[in-house]
């Protein structure tokens, strides 16, 4: 969900339900779960107040989603990311695999359609679109971001959300303070998304902001687990801080250049296949080889 939430904000059922394209029932369950986990508290005037950073609350919900039956769409995405599902799905498949009602399966498909991760195919089928986390979509995703993210920084009216920037900075510095080879790639991915969403949100151009936020939303979905080396993760986090430094000093050109460099370094792929005496292949060979 891409609501501009902060710690201490009120969590309004209807707004959340609209944002997630679901009914209020799963939102209510999610709020109760967050309360149980200490991530939200009941407000005196009714409803709930967020007691943690939104990314942390999202992570807790993800962990509990399947068991609690809250997030069938999330379970489908996770299974798609793990290549447990075919490229095309239908309601009958979902009912069988997840033991859910027809209406629940249909709601999940509608939510996935709203997120832009499936498209209606012929008959009763739905097909998954290529995701930024898919190996075949990764380079294209970086190329897309190389065009837009520096422009977001250079856009008229770019205004860094300082409260959120402070949180991103402290989250990044906390990770960097950990000893070498100690932090998990998932922690890095969370910090990475928080930083890039901050840049998108801060853009002065609403269309740039919305298209980048939508893309980062897709990046946030399960499926991409290509693994990064500790050194490169630290280097990337340092690059985030450097970009923030430039922005805070009003050196927007330098920040945009640094963003380009950062994305170019991050899009590097290790060889797909190598063998002694042969030129290593960097791009994936198209299709399966049987």
């Amino acid at each position: 969900m891409d609501l501009d939430l902060h710690q201490g904000d009120r969590l309004v059922e209807k707004t959340l339900a609209d944002s997630c394209s679901v009914s209020r029932t799963p939102i209510r369950s999610a709020l109760r779960l967050l309360e149980k986990e200490g991530m939200a508290r009941k407000a005196a005037e009714g409803g709930f107040v967020l007691e943690c950073e939104p990314e942390k609350g999202h992570s807790i919900l993800n962990q509990h989603a399947v068991g609690a039956g809250v997030d069938l769409a999330g379970a489908i995405l996770r299974d798609r990311g793990a290549r447990r599902l075919d490229g095309a799905i239908n309601v009958t498949d979902l009912i069988r695999r997840y033991s859910v009602s027809r209406s629940a399966a249909q709601r999940a498909l509608e939510a996935l359609l709203a997120q832009g991760v499936i498209q209606k195919a012929e008959g009763q089928s739905w097909v998954f679109t290529r995701m930024p986390g898919d190996r075949s979509g990764r380079i294209e995703s970086y190329e897309f971001r190389l065009i837009l993210e520096p422009q977001a920084i250079l856009s008229d009216g770019f205004k860094l959300d300082t409260k959120r920037a402070d949180l991103v900075r402290s989250q990044t510095e906390a990770l960097l303070a950990q000893s070498e080879n100690s932090f998990n790639s998932q922690d890095f991915q969370d910090a990475d998304l928080a930083f890039h969403k901050l840049i998108a949100r801060s853009s002065g151009n609403q269309y740039l902001a919305s298209v980048l936020m939508a893309h980062h939303g897709l990046r946030h979905l399960p499926g991409g687990s290509f693994g990064m080396i500790d050194f490169r993760m630290r280097q990337a986090l340092d690059e985030h801080l450097r970009i923030l430094d430039f922005i805070e000093q009003d050196h927007f050109d330098l920040a945009a250049d640094q963003m380009r460099l950062h994305l170019r370094l991050s899009m590097h792929q290790r060889p797909s296949v190598a063998n002694r005496g042969a030129p290593a292949l960097v791009q994936a060979t198209r299709g399966s080889i049987r």
């Binding site: 447990r84 687990s225 797909s272 292949l281």
Partner: peptide, 22 residues
């Protein structure tokens, strides 16, 4: 499963694929 990860579907529920592991 390396670079061929996008070639797979219907992976069993007790199997997890990645294109790279530490």
């Amino acid at each position: 499963v390396g670079a061929q990860i996008d070639a797979y579907s219907r992976v069993p529920d007790n199997v997890h694929l990645q294109e790279w592991f530490p």
